[in-house]
C-alpha cells in the first residue's frame, strides 16, 4: 500500500482532490442544528450559482439560497484555504527546522495575532479592523523573532527556536494582561477569538485570503528542492549549491505570511500545521515535491471536516475540535507506522 502511494503520487493527488471536492459538497449539506436543506437542492443551489453552467440550471430562490451561497460556501471555502495555508506553512517550518515538532507558530505568529486581536477588542476597534491589526501584530512578532534569531548575518535555527519561545511567552503574557484588564464581555470575545472559528465568514474575507495563500504556496513549492537538500544539514546544503541563508529567509517569510493571514481572520487554530505535515509524510515520504501538495489537500479536507463538526455541534470553537479529533487520529497513524518512517 505504502509503496504504491510512493510510486504513484500523481494518482493519489488526484484522488485526494476528488475527496476534497466531495468533502466540500458534503459539508454544504450540514448546517446548524435545526436547519435542513435537501441534498439535491443544496447541489442545485451551489451549481446554479457558478458562472457558465449556472445559466443552464433552473433559478433557485428563498432563504436557503442565502444560507448556502452567502453563509455556508464562503465559510467552507475559507476553511479549505485555512487548511492549505497552515499545512504548507507547517511543512515548510518543519523542513527549515529539520524537526517534526516545528509548527507554523514557531516565530510567534499566533501569539502576535492574538495580542493584536485582544488589543483591538479592548480598544473597541470595529469588526473589520481586527484582522488587519491582528495581521500586522502577527507579522511584527515574526519579524522580531527573526531579527533576534540572526547571528553574524546567519539564521541559526536553534537560536531562532529559543527566541521564538521567549517572544511567544512575552506576547502570551501581554495578551493575558489585556484579558485581565478587560470587562467580562470583552474577555469572552477575546477568549472566543483565541479558540478560533470560521463562523460568520463573508466572501470578502475569502477573496482577501485567496491571493495571499496562492502566492505563499507557490513560493514554498518553488523552494521544495532546497527544502529537501536542507535536510542534509546547512553546511552540506551549501556544498550542494543551495543559497542556504536566502532560502531560509524566503521560506520563513512565506510560511509566517501564510499562517498570519489565516489566523488573523479565523483566530488561532492549532494542531493542523503541526500534525498534517507529519501525517502526510507517513504517506508520501519526506520528499517536499510530493509532500507539500499532498499535505495542502489533506489539510484542506481536515479543516473542512473539523469546521463541519463545529457547525453541527452548535459552534464549538474549531481550535478545540482540531485537537479533540485530530490528536486521536494522529496517534493512530503514529502507532501504525511506528518504526517504519523513523518518526
Amino acid at each position: 500500500m505504502k509503496g504504491l502511494i510512493r510510486k504513484r503520487p500523481v494518482a493519489i493527488f488526484v484522488l485526494l482532490l476528488l475527496m476534497l471536492f466531495v468533502t466540500v459538497m458534503a459539508s454544504a449539506l450540514v448546517g446548524s442544528p435545526g436547519v435542513d436543506i435537501s441534498f439535491p437542492r443544496v447541489i442545485g443551489i451551489i451549481f446554479s450559482g457558478l458562472p457558465g453552467i449556472g445559466k443552464m440550471l433552473p433559478e433557485y430562490s428563498g432563504t436557503d439560497v442565502i444560507i448556502i451561497r452567502q453563509i455556508r460556501l464562503p465559510r467552507i471555502l475559507l476553511g479549505v484555504l485555512g487548511g492549505i495555508a497552515l499545512s504548507i506553512s507547517g511543512t515548510s517550518m518543519q523542513g527549515i527546522f529539520k524537526n517534526p515538532m516545528a509548527s507554523p507558530f514557531i516565530l510567534g505568529v499566533s501569539a502576535g495575532a492574538a495580542f493584536g486581536a485582544a488589543a483591538s477588542v479592548v480598544l473597541g476597534l470595529g469588526m473589520y479592523t481586527l484582522p488587519a491589526v491582528a495581521f500586522v501584530s502577527a507579522m511584527g512578532t515574526a519579524l522580531l523573532v527573526f531579527g533576534l534569531g540572526r547571528i553574524h548575518g546567519k539564521t541559526d535555527v536553534a537560536t531562532l527556536l529559543l527566541a521564538g519561545l521567549a517572544v511567544n511567552f512575552l506576547m502570551q503574557s501581554l495578551t493575558a494582561y489585556l484579558i485581565y484588564l478587560s470587562p467580562p464581555e470583552k474577555r469572552t470575545s477575546i477568549i472566543f477569538w483565541m479558540w478560533g472559528s470560521f463562523n460568520g465568514t463573508v466572501w470578502q474575507e475569502f477573496w482577501i485570503v485567496l491571493p495571499v495563500v496562492i502566492i505563499g504556496m507557490i513560493i514554498v513549492y518553488v523552494f521544495s528542492r532546497e527544502l529537501n537538500v536542507l535536510q542534509l544539514g546547512d553546511e552540506s546544503a551549501l556544498y550542494l549549491g543551495v543559497e542556504v541563508e536566502k532560502t531560509k529567509i524566503v521560506l520563513l517569510g512565506a510560511s509566517s505570511l501564510l499562517a498570519a493571514v489565516v489566523v488573523s481572520f479565523t483566530g488561532i487554530i492549532g494542531f493542523v500545521g503541526l500534525i498534517i505535515p507529519h501525517a502526510t509524510r507517513i504517506i508520501t515520504g519526506p520528499d517536499h515535491k510530493k509532500l507539500l501538495p499532498t499535505a495542502a489537500i489533506i489539510g484542506g479536507i481536515f479543516m473542512v471536516l473539523c469546521d463541519t463538526i463545529s457547525r453541527a455541534s452548535g459552534e464549538i470553537p474549531i481550535g478545540i475540535i482540531t485537537g479533540l479529533f485530530g490528536a486521536p487520529f494522529f496517534i493512530y497513524l503514529l502507532l501504525r507506522s511506528r518504526g517504519e518512517t523513523g518518526w
Binding site: 523542513g95 529539520k98 524537526n99 517534526p100 528542492r225 529537501n228 537538500v229 536542507l230 535536510q231 542534509l232 544539514g233 553546511e235 552540506s236 556544498y239 550542494l240 549549491g241 543551495v242 509524510r281 515520504g285 519526506p286 520528499d287 518512517t341 523513523g342 518518526w343
Partner: peptide
C-alpha cells in the same frame, strides 16, 4: 565535500539522497 558525520533530518531513501547530488 564528504563530512565526517551527516545527520539527515527526515527518512529519505538512499536514492533520493544520491539524487540530491544533482542539485
Amino acid at each position: 565535500v564528504v563530512p565526517q558525520n551527516t545527520f539527515i533530518g527526515f527518512p529519505f531513501t538512499t536514492w533520493e539522497v544520491v539524487l540530491m547530488g544533482r542539485n
